[in-house]
Amino acid sequence: MKKKVLTVDDSRTMRDMVSFTLKGAGYDVVEAADGQQALGVIGANKVDLVITDLNMPVMDGLTLIRRLRATPAHRTLPILMLTTEADEKKKSEGRAVGATGWIVKPFNPEKLISVVQKVCG
């Protein structure tokens, strides 16, 4: 069965690219434009991986990760965060709230696929 990836980003371009790349690699992809929407999507879908941007309106990525980790069902859900810079501070903040890993934007498709494979098989 196809694994389902949720891409959370306020940039449509970014969502489209993540979605296109992963669909090409055989994943199902669902989208959300901010953390709040993402919680809604996760509530209605069985998601195998979340890839979230950090800086978003309404609810940012760190809050989203924190909220997910506070839910028993999502304690071990793989969550990758997208950061634009190889920013150590952001990474450690992400780690502190329970992110699984990170992807630096801009990514190339192969890198994205390999990271996704790494965390959700």
Binding site: L6, R15, E31, A32, D48, T76
Partner: peptide, 18 residues
């Protein structure tokens, strides 16, 4: 426990898209 989540069937819902 190591498996992120059970990999069973479960209804596939259409994702929220734009």
């Amino acid at each position: 426990a190591a498996r992120p989540r059970p990999n069973g069937g479960g209804a596939e819902h259409a994702g929220l898209t734009s």
